[in-house]
Amino acid sequence: MHPGSRSHTGALLLAVAAALIFSGCGTEREPSRGTRRSAAEPPRIALIMKSLANEFFVTMAEGAKAHQAANSGTYTLLVNGIRNESDLAQQVALVEQMMAQGVDAIVIAPADSRALVPVLGKALRRKIVVVNIDNKLDESTLQQVGIDIPFVGPDNRAGARTVGATLAKRLQRTDKVAILEGIPTAFNAHQRRLGFEDSMRGAGIDVVAVQSAHWEQDEANTVAAAILREHPDLKAILASNDNMALGAATAVRQADKTGQVYVVGFDNIPAVHQLLQDGRVLATADQHADRLAVYGIEYALKILRGETQPHDTQTPVDLITTAPH
């Protein structure tokens, strides 16, 4: 980002210098370009993501870039991600860098629902529009800091509930199931777990184990294999993302229980499509990763244009039970 901004400033200085040299006294237009920017130049929006090593956020970022390319006259976009999902300090630093760059809006998927609130408060005081996507900021922390940031994103709990309800139709009361949770401190992980639990409780199904596999395939495989041994009559594994569903499906196959133990996931990543087709994964949820950042950007653009907006906006989560063709 830094080199980019430097060359931008450099180009500006060159233009100013050229204007001064070639027109002698210089016209009013060129030197005043810097101050004119906010009025006539398209607004600059910073998209701050979690880890860009994560498939989900890569899809989000690509969706945003495609949207910007199609609307290049409307706004310019800076996309940044952090090294890994737990690196809060780096994300706080990114917000500060974007503030220093003087962007008009920040659209952020916070790595933590509390730790990012203070620095976003600073951005708001600088009259930067802030829109929260993906991971919802904590209400009480927002109140404590005395700020209000709109959330544009899917309801993970409702999505997980829909996936769970699809599974429940295949099960009977008192059947035993297990839940594989994401990183326990992540808001999404918590919401999906709650959604799964809601649907299972509603159908009278017995959740005999809840363990974290940190969103990871390998760990999900180890944990699922252990749960399958501990509960030989287990009927289903609810994985909070598709990577863990892949690991669980492999554990089911290795335990020779294909067809006896259902697996469901969340996210609808391409790697899971073959398993959906084979029936080794029963259902997953698609929260349209490619559109998630775009929803936030469009929301920010409307605020910048002075349009009033509903406070929080829910984006769709669709149930997926068959592989797309």
Binding site: A53, N54, E216, Q217, D218, N221, N243, L246, T250, R253
Partner: peptide, 14 residues
């Protein structure tokens, strides 16, 4: 061995 066992490759593995 990793790919053979998990039937897939995850760039975040290991």
């Amino acid at each position: 061995f990793h790919v053979a066992y998990l039937e897939s490759a995850d760039p975040n593995s290991g």
